[in-house]
Simulated scan of single mutants.
Amino acid sequence: MFNTFIWDFDGTLFDTYPMIVQGYVLALKDYGIKSSKEEVYRILKEHSSAAIAEKYRLDFTELSKKAKKHEKKVAYVPKSFAGTQDVLQKIVANNKKNMILTHRLSASTQKLLESEQLADLVTEIVGPENNFARKPDPEALNYLLDKYTLDPETTVMIGDRALDVDAGKNAGVQTLFFDNENLLTDIQADYRVTSIPAIKEFI
């Protein structure tokens, strides 16, 4: 059905949120701001990390740097969601491509992929060091569409947040919302799944 699968990383391929949330909670604490994990998580899922900075009137770049420093100290090892390896392998076995579009640094993303022998299944990782506008801006997706001469009709953007879906829509590709918690019910994606294995039907 689709030939190119462009994945978000955090919360879509890997369950990294416990680490990310704790990083932001500790970063906010540096500013003397007390926030719960539940509150930070909801803001991240419904909006983005930039929305956390906006809520507390902080500089996003500075807050993000602090959060990432704390994140590295958190005693949590992220794992891929159940079925991830199988789905990525099936895509490659069918001569189709996996790509990643993430707000996480590519080196960090690569390291996590390598920890589960998944790196060779991904054609390209586009991260913040590419200096494209952040999702939901379509700039990074347009770069991939142009570089690989992708057909928007057979290219799908997969993510767990509205900004992933909106980025896909803004780039004119198909969109698939990974809704493993039934937390966000108003996401207007073309398709919706509640587990990674369910994505097999789109290969």
Rank of each mutant, 00 (worst) to 15 (best):
M1P: 10
F5C: 02
W7E: 07
F9D: 04
D10M: 06
G11E: 01
T12H: 04
T12W: 05
T12R: 08
L13Y: 03
L13N: 05
F14I: 11
D15G: 08
T16K: 06
Y17W: 05
Y17E: 14
Y17A: 10
M19S: 13
V21Y: 09
Q22M: 14
Q22E: 15
Q22C: 11
G23P: 00
Y24W: 10
V25R: 12
V25P: 15
V25E: 01
A27Y: 13
A27T: 01
K29A: 08
K29W: 10
D30F: 14
Y31A: 09
K34T: 15
S35N: 06
K37D: 08
K37Q: 05
Y41G: 11
R42V: 12
I43G: 06
L44M: 07
K45V: 10
H47T: 07
H47S: 03
S48P: 02
A53K: 09
E54N: 12
R57D: 09
L58M: 05
L63A: 06
L63E: 09
K65C: 12
A67V: 03
A67S: 10
A67F: 04
K69A: 13
E71G: 11
K73T: 15
A75K: 14
K79Y: 13
A82D: 12
A82W: 12
G83F: 14
Q85H: 12
D86I: 13
V87L: 02
Q89T: 13
I91W: 04
A93N: 14
N94H: 14
N95Q: 11
N98H: 10
M99C: 10
L101G: 03
L101A: 00
R104I: 03
R104F: 10
S106A: 14
S106V: 11
S108A: 14
Q110N: 11
E114T: 14
Q117D: 13
L118H: 12
L118T: 15
L118N: 09
A119S: 15
A119L: 15
D120V: 14
V122N: 03
V126K: 00
E129K: 11
N131K: 07
R134M: 15
P136D: 03
D137K: 00
D137P: 08
L141N: 07
L141K: 10
Y143Q: 01
L144N: 00
D146T: 15
D146G: 11
D151T: 01
T154A: 07
T155Y: 03
G159K: 02
R161L: 01
D164V: 08
D166G: 08
G168Y: 01
G168D: 03
V173R: 04
V173Y: 00
Q174V: 00
Q174C: 02
T175N: 06
L176C: 05
F178D: 08
D179V: 10
D179C: 12
N180S: 09
E181T: 12
L184P: 09
D186T: 00
I187G: 06
A189R: 02
Y191W: 00
Y191G: 04
Y191L: 11
R192D: 05
R192A: 09
T194P: 03
K200H: 06
E201P: 13
F202A: 04
F202R: 00
I203N: 01
I203F: 11
